[in-house]
């Protein structure tokens, strides 16, 4: 049953690994802007879209 020492140490080490990853993420500024990336990831397939939908998308609005 003393394997529990081993298991818990491993789990703590894994946790610390994630913790270090978090600290590094903060340091490189990933938490400075929490809005833009959420929009940015939607831009991936923009080029294909623009070619196909261009005429349809913009009919000027009438008030």
């Amino acid at each position: 049953m003393s394997v529990i020492y081993l298991l818990i140490s491993i789990s703590i080490i894994v946790a610390i690994g994630f913790f270090i990853a978090f600290i590094r993420a903060v340091k490189t500024g990933q938490y400075d802007d929490d809005y833009t990336p959420s929009v940015r990831m939607l831009f991936d397939d923009e080029l294909i879209q623009s070619k196909v939908e261009k005429p349809k998308v913009k009919s000027p609005t009438t008030l």
Binding site: D32, D33, D34, Y35, T36, V39, R40, F43, E46
Partner: peptide, 22 residues
């Protein structure tokens, strides 16, 4: 955000641009 992050397509010499929206 989109246009400002695609500045490199408008101007040679710009390598990347990143927007901080807030």
């Amino acid at each position: 955000i989109w246009i400002l992050e695609n500045l490199q397509r408008l101007q040679k010499g710009i390598s990347t641009s990143q927007v901080n929206f807030p």
